[in-house]
């Protein structure tokens, strides 16, 4: 079977981001493969290691710097990669249409997508790509089991979790708990250098115009009181309750 993993590169969760008049300043920030995408790559590898003959392709839509995240996926064990390279930013719906063209051409059986992006805080890409491909999808997936032509998953639903059975081809978006991604080992990093990384341009997939424009970005954190309440547990608790009552929140 053919498995495609969608890869994004995002600021390291611990990176300090700054906001300027022009928006978010990412200069000097360390970028990493999105942790939610790593679950996808890891899952694809585990499917192959379980004995299923599978080709694993990492596909990314994004600027040149994404190459590093793509290399990480290759170093983890993906066989080859396709980078739809553009410096333009697109909303997830537009991204889905572009990616669907790449995925469609590869005639994949399974598409693994990160459950939620750590930069745009979006959970839309998986479902939107499924719609663009005409495939079913499962999101927030914590367990995945494949049969010849279907996927049985456990995923987080509104309340609790539920089991779904989806005919293949299908889109699966990841959730923490699906697996514990491996480190790309040094030998595999070196091997990844020789793996194919195909570049596509927007023209190759027909181009696109974003449906959403970002007008403004600012780091807006609530000012917190940072009040430390002293005293023994009982005194502290009583004082805390008084404060919360004054704030009219309990």
């Amino acid at each position: 079977m053919k498995i495609i993993c969608i890869i994004k590169q995002v600021p390291d969760a611990e990176a300090r981001i700054r906001s300027t008049a022009a928006g978010i300043d990412l200069e000097g920030v360390t970028f990493v493969i999105d942790g939610m995408d790593e679950y996808g790559v890891e899952q694809a590898l585990r499917i192959r290691e379980s004995g299923v003959e599978a080709e694993i392709i990492a596909v990314a839509l994004g600027p040149k710097r994404y190459e590093e995240a793509i290399r990480t996926a290759l170093a983890m064990g993906a066989d080859r990669a396709i980078h739809l390279e553009t410096e333009e930013a697109f909303d997830p719906i537009t991204q889905a249409k572009l990616l669907a063209k790449v995925v469609g051409e590869e005639a994949a059986d399974l598409l693994l997508v990160g459950g939620k992006e750590a930069d745009w805080d979006s959970a839309a890409l998986g479902a939107a790509t499924a719609e663009a491909l005409g495939w079913p999808h499962s999101d927030w997936t914590t367990e995945l089991e494949l049969t010849a032509n279907s996927a049985k998953v456990t995923h987080d639903a509104d309340e609790g979790s539920e089991v779904l059975t989806l005919p293949l081809p299908a889109v699966i978006t990841t959730q923490q708990g699906l697996n514990e991604p491996r480190y790309p080992t040094l030998p595999n990093i070196m091997k990844a250098k020789r793996k194919e990384l195909k570049k596509l341009s927007l023209d190759d997939v027909g181009g696109a115009v974003s449906k959403i424009v970002i007008l403004k970005q600012e780091i807006q954190t609530r000012e917190r009181l940072n009040k430390i309440i002293e005293g023994d547990p009982m005194e502290a608790a009583q004082q805390l309750v008084k404060l919360l009552q004054q704030d009219k929140v309990i």
């Binding site: 930069d119 970005q217 780091i219």
Partner: peptide, 9 residues
């Protein structure tokens, strides 16, 4: 966005 650290319009 950005893990809820950024508010964007």
């Amino acid at each position: 966005s950005y893990l809820a650290r950024v508010t964007e319009t």
